[in-house]
Amino acid sequence: MCRPDKGMMKNKKVLLVASHGGHWVQMRKMAAAFDGMAVHYVSTTQCIDVEVSPAPVTVVKDANLTDKLGLLLMAFQVFWVVLRFRPNVVLSTGAAPGFFALFFGKMLGAKTIWVDSIANAEKLSVSGAKVGRYADLWLTQWPHLEKPQGPFFKGSVL
């Protein structure tokens, strides 16, 4: 069993960010860590509303490195959410929206957590490798990808 909640997690605002698909499914499994806190989700499709209701969801543009203009728009959207919600904690499993969320979250004083997708079994994702300097807790889900300076292995969704 997971450790019981000691009731000291209240009054925290948590921003959980993931592209839809595998990143989202993995992040949802970690949401149990934030029971009782005010959680706000960011993803790339509106359809997940139902799944997390009544928690609010902000939808941002889905884009990757091949779409620079899209990335810029997404970065702005993510910045706006972080600015308005002012989270105490930001967590992401990827991909690009999560990178920006940690970047802006760190800038505005949040604790930041990156858990690289378990799909990256041979090396970190592009976002996951770049985000290390902005992640207060920087994790991989594969023991063999752990390095002394991070990312660290502290469990996985499987």
Partner: peptide
């Protein structure tokens, strides 16, 4: 439930500890 749910508990516990770390009453 998934194989190796110990791994998931470990991950969730790590995240929880990290979130409350430095809050004074931890």
């Amino acid at each position: 439930f998934g194989r190796g749910s110990d791994n998931l508990c470990m991950l969730i516990d790590e995240i929880k500890s990290f979130v409350i770390e430095g809050d004074g009453n931890a």
